[in-house]
């Protein structure tokens, strides 16, 4: 099913979001650091893209940059383009009015912590209606309520008419995340960005939520970006994947290619180090030595060079450029 949809999605017109050479920097006590340094990827229409990486790799910052939600004034987009439907959004970021038309209307986002993302002192219904008030100001409040109820029903909430009169604390974690998704989808966006949507949830609830996102995606025909640290989530839910490390894209490819033939040493290490059901119990797991350096202490050249087993001279001095060793499979490593 996934493969079929991918086959016909190759023409450039089918690319709904094109991020290229994105550089995002933050002002810190130690000066400006680049949290994202030249990231680029494409999202196909109707497809699911997974962005995977460890904490601090810049995956969430990339999402915030796309949404125009970088913390101000410390964070800013230094360079690069974010083309949404072939139109660059970066120049719009400064103008609040312009971004409002897109954010929440055409591109929506759901966050990791459903408790902190919802307003604790407002009822669910009030918070959901905000979307309509903002984007469809002519709607009657009665219609808004009905629309909210039907949206909640769509995300699998059993008694939505009751839930809109409840406060977030009265709902379980899984329910809250469903409410968040219902809110994000109520304006029928073209793109849904899900930043670690299930990290705070249990595996059985995670399965419910991801299943539901897949269903709704097929129903509404939207594109989805899933940001996660869990390679399992990527393997099971995404068409394409981007592996990020230290603010850069290490490797990107279609999911089956990436898992069957990972080429970047970081991706290889990451895949090997997860204890799977197939690894011999109690055996020593392969590891990636050391740990992710903090952003101000990133090595020059390839940012993975200080942890890489295949490190060469050139890795320490020159930034590896993205190459395409196989069709549609991109990697930034001097080995290729």
């Amino acid at each position: 099913m996934i493969n079929e949809s991918k086959a016909k999605l190759t023409a450039t017109s089918d690319i709904i979001l094109n991020v290229s050479n994105l550089v995002v920097s933050f002002e810190t006590e130690k000066g400006r650091v680049k949290a994202v340094d030249g990231a680029g990827f494409k999202l196909k229409k109707g497809a699911t893209l997974g962005i995977v990486g460890e904490s601090g790799c810049g995956k969430s910052v990339t999402a915030l940059a796309i949404m125009g939600l970088l913390p101000k004034p410390s964070g800013r987009i230094e360079s690069g383009t974010i083309e949404f439907k072939s139109e660059d959004m970066v120049p719009l970021m400064g103008k609040q009015g312009e971004m409002h038309k897109i954010r929440g209307r055409q591109i929506s986002m759901i966050f990791q912590e459903p408790m902190t993302a919802l307003n604790p002192v407002q009822k669910i219904g009030v918070q959901m209606n905000e979307v309509y008030q903002l984007h469809f100001p002519l709607m009657k409040s009665h219609d808004m309520d009905n629309a909210s109820i039907s949206m909640l029903a769509q995300v699998g909430i059993a008694s939505p008419d009751k839930v809109i009169r409840q406060y977030p604390h009265e709902l379980s974690g899984g329910m809250r995340q469903r409410v968040m998704i219902a809110m994000a989808l109520s304006s029928k966006p073209d793109i849904l960005i899900a930043d670690e949507p299930t990290t705070a949830l249990d595996v059985t609830v995670q399965a419910q939520i991801l299943d539901m996102i897949n269903d709704l995606q097929a129903k509404l025909g939207m594109s989805v970006i899933i940001i996660t640290h869990d390679l399992g989530v990527i393997a099971e839910n995404c068409d394409d994947a981007v592996v990020m490390y230290g603010g850069r894209v290490a490797e990107r490819a279609a999911v089956p290619d990436l898992f069957s033939n990972p080429v970047h040493p970081y991706t290889q290490g990451l895949l090997k180090s997860i204890p799977g059901f197939a690894t011999t119990p109690k055996s020593t797991l392969p590891t990636i030595k050391g740990q992710v350096p903090s952003l101000d202490k990133m090595p020059s050249g390839c940012r993975f060079s200080n942890r890489c087993d295949h490190v060469m001279e050139i890795c320490r001095s020159a930034v590896p450029l993205e190459t395409e060793p196989a069709k549609g499979h991109f990697v930034a490593c001097h080995k290729y």
Binding site: G174, V203, T204, Q206, A207, G232, A235, E236, V255, F259
Partner: peptide, 24 residues
């Protein structure tokens, strides 16, 4: 069974059947 089937496996070729539990 449901718990095991819900764990995402880092293998796109895996053909496990997933049991989605109802409710909470």
């Amino acid at each position: 069974k449901a718990l095991l089937s819900a764990v995402p496996v880092a293998d796109p070729k895996s053909t496990r059947e997933r049991i989605i539990l109802k409710g909470e």
